[in-house]
């Protein structure tokens, strides 16, 4: 239902052109969940915002970027071609693709009630007004596990707890009836116990509603719980993607291996943690060649620093971008 090809995003900034997303491709089938994982600054959120055309005016999409989405009526839409003021884009936002954000506090406007903001979405995408819209909003609040929704609906965001706000945000996104939900680090700002509840909820809702989901997180552990497929991003490119189990069990890219090694594990308390060495470079100082080579322990001299690795199909739906798999080793 969604396929993204060669997505590149560039920003004009004072110090020149910055490319936070370069040549990203992935596809998503109906009802499936794709996890996007990477450190902060790896371009996950920019990718998500590009899908909704929510990037600021200083951003431009690369000439070869294609974002193809098949809507409820079965019609294919080229998202990259929609004009910013088009009705089709507004129908897409919310109605076809819903989005929830990391900060549940900041994503609600503080001066309107929860109900006001939910019924607004319902009126826009379902054509329901007044009492009918309100009834649906209450139903959605109940569905996301908010107790006494008839009361909560008239409350202001600041009177709710963090977990409750994120539930309300999910209700808001779902009430417009989207077929795809983009969740941008939805649990990062929450307490660990609440995090688990919200994750559970999202998984359950996804099953009920048959929605597809793009789940963005920096936490591989969280991704492993919700996603069937995962794409690992580093400095704006997807370095490796594939089915979540296979990828976690046999990571092909050194960066993925590093990420997995860096997860603290309860069963190995005595050992030291193994962080990925070095720091993520700023997108304005992108290394040439493979973006990961300055931090890569297995970098091949003379190759990784000069040539950008092309995607290699490893079979089983797995794709990796690394010279270790391109056969360059023999050349060196």
């Amino acid at each position: 239902m969604l396929s993204v090809e060669n997505l590149s995003v560039t920003f004009r900034t004072d110090e020149g052109i910055v490319t936070p997303v370069a040549d990203v491709s992935f596809a998503l089938a109906e009802g499936r969940t794709l996890g996007l994982v990477g450190e902060s600054g790896s371009g996950k959120s920019v990718t998500a915002k590009a899908l909704m055309r929510l990037l600021p005016g200083t951003a431009t999409l690369g000439a070869h970027s294609r974002m193809r989405y098949v809507d409820k009526a079965g019609q294919a839409i080229g998202i990259e071609r929609l004009s910013p003021r088009a009705r089709a884009l507004r129908r897409l936002r919310g109605g076809e693709i819903g989005m929830i954000f990391q900060e549940p506090m900041a994503s609600f406007s503080p001066v309107y009630t929860i109900g006001n903001q939910i019924t607004e979405a319902i009126a826009l995408h379902r054509g329901l007004k007044g009492r009918a819209a309100r009834a649906l909003a209450i139903e959605m609040l109940a569905k996301v596990g908010i107790a006494s929704p008839e009361r909560r609906i008239d409350q202001y965001p600041h009177t709710l707890s963090g977990g409750m706000r994120q539930r309300a945000m999910i209700a808001l996104a779902l009430s417009a009836g989207p077929r795809l939900l983009i969740a941008d680090e939805p649990t990062t700002a929450l307490d660990v116990t609440i995090q688990a509840q919200v994750l559970d909820l999202m998984r359950g809702l996804q099953c009920d509603l048959g929605m597809a989901m793009i789940f963005i997180s920096h936490d591989l552990g969280v991704i492993a719980q919700v996603a069937q497929e995962v794409a690992v991003m580093y400095l704006g490119t997807i370095v490796e993607r594939g089915p979540v189990r296979a990828l976690l069990q046999a990571p092909a890219h050194p960066y993925t291996r590093g990420l997995i090694a860096a997860i603290p594990r309860l069963d190995r308390l005595e050992g030291r943690l193994h962080p990925v060495p070095g720091e993520i470079p700023s997108p304005s100082a992108r290394p040439a060649g493979c973006p990961f080579h300055p931090r890569c322990a297995e970098a091949l001299a003379g190759i990784c620093a000069t040539r950008v690795p092309e995607p290699v199909d490893l079979g089983g739906g797995r794709v990796v971008r690394c010279h270790l798999h391109t056969g360059e080793r023999s050349v060196a």
């Binding site: 004072d14 110090e15 020149g16 490319t19 370069a22 700023s282 997108p283 992108r286 040439a288 620093a305």
Partner: peptide, 27 residues
């Protein structure tokens, strides 16, 4: 990225070469 744009606003940083520049020697 935000930090970097602030730095350059301060006039402290030179414009960095575009990301797609050809391969260069280490430094």
């Amino acid at each position: 990225m935000n930090d970097m744009s602030r730095l350059s606003e301060a006039g402290a940083l030179p414009a960095t070469p575009p990301a797609t520049s050809p391969a260069t020697p280490p430094e």
